[in-house]
């Protein structure tokens, strides 16, 4: 297929990392243009009209045929112009869980010309249409199903235009170089806790031990589920709202999510771990994630959660 030739685009788009900010500007080295099916039908109609003109020796029919043929030729320029000079910038896609739809953001910037009916998609069968005003930009999100964990690289991206007459199709294949991080699909299940962590399993029995100055992290806003013992009543009486004294992780009370302690095949183990990472993070519990070859934590918080999920997503993959 013609579209396979992707010359001129590759060097600027190393597939390795998202070279998004630089973007790519569509020019003649990467735009292809051929008559569409409608255009071919139009050509056949023109041929018939030309035959009629020849056989009836009618110059008005000739004029009409030639005028439409010229419109066809000028249409080539218009269709090409609709695409040429368009800038595409690939953004970094957000991470997601397996089984979801990865969303790859693409930003379109036009130069001095307005663009009409630009079609974007992974294949010619599934395209989204967008208009772009002159000097304007639009953000487009293209989704792709993410069946399994790991890096999900964005396939090459098709940018297409048939405007104005639909007789020509101009297109460009672009390697956006994006990849989305796909976490394992969380799978609920029981967690065999590693030895030594059992005693801190239930929430209510937990001691607010070590209420020392060193572990005091500061105040944070109250969230439903926080222990009432740790509410800062003084602050509340001063009208600063419900605040909770935040304490640093308490040694010995963390969960250990150990890959090797689980049964089952690798993927379901990872799914289970993923579920627990989310669950414990939700409950603000510190935990350790133990994977063969790496150990994360003990820690809690958003950053730790992200790091754990990332490790789970990329486990066993050469990132």
């Amino acid at each position: 297929m013609l579209a396979e030739s992707l010359k001129g685009v590759r060097p600027r788009w190393p597939g390795r990392i998202v070279r998004a900010a630089g973007g790519v500007r569509l020019d003649r080295s990467c735009i292809f243009i051929v008559p569409s099916r409608v255009g071919l039908a139009f050509g056949v109609a023109l041929l018939l009209m030309l035959l009629a003109a020849i056989n009836y020796r009618n110059n008005l029919a000739y004029v009409l045929t030639f005028l439409l043929g010229s419109v066809f030729m000028v249409g080539v320029l218009h269709t090409y112009r609709n695409l040429a000079g368009l800038r595409l910038q690939a953004g970094a896609p957000a991470a997601l869980f397996a089984g979801g739809q990865a969303r790859f953001p693409i930003r379109l910037d036009s130069d001095g010309r307005a663009r009409q009916a630009l079609a974007l998609g992974w294949s010619s069968g599934d395209l989204q249409l967008h208009d772009l005003p002159a000097e304007g930009s639009a953000s487009v999100e293209l989704s792709l199903p993410a069946p399994r964990r790991g890096w999900l690289p964005a396939p090459r991206l098709r940018v297409e235009s048939r405007f104005p007459l639909g007789l020509m199709v101009a297109w460009s294949w672009i390697d956006p170089g994006q990849r989305a991080l796909v976490y394992p699909q969380p799978l609920a299940g029981d967690l065999p806790l590693s030895a030594g962590a059992q005693e801190a399993a239930e929430d209510e029995g937990r001691q607010a031990c070590g209420e020392g100055v060193d572990d005091y992290q500061g105040l944070r806003a109250y969230r439903p589920g926080d222990s009432k013992r740790r509410l800062d009543w003084k602050a509340y009486s001063r009208g600063r709202g419900l605040l909770v004294k935040d304490f640093a992780a308490l040694e010995g009370s963390e969960f250990c999510l150990d890959f090797s302690a689980l049964a089952g095949d690798g993927e379901s183990r990872l799914s289970l771990l993923c579920h627990w990472v989310l669950d414990l993070s939700e409950r603000q519990r510190p935990f350790v994630l133990q994977l063969p070859g790496q150990r994360l934590g003990p820690n809690s918080g958003e950053a730790h959660r992200e790091a754990c999920l990332r490790a789970l997503a990329l486990y066993g993959e050469a990132s």
Partner: peptide, 12 residues
Amino acid sequence: FLGFFALATAGL
């Protein structure tokens, strides 16, 4: 397309 053709025949 039929319209284009009908237009051409009008010229006859």
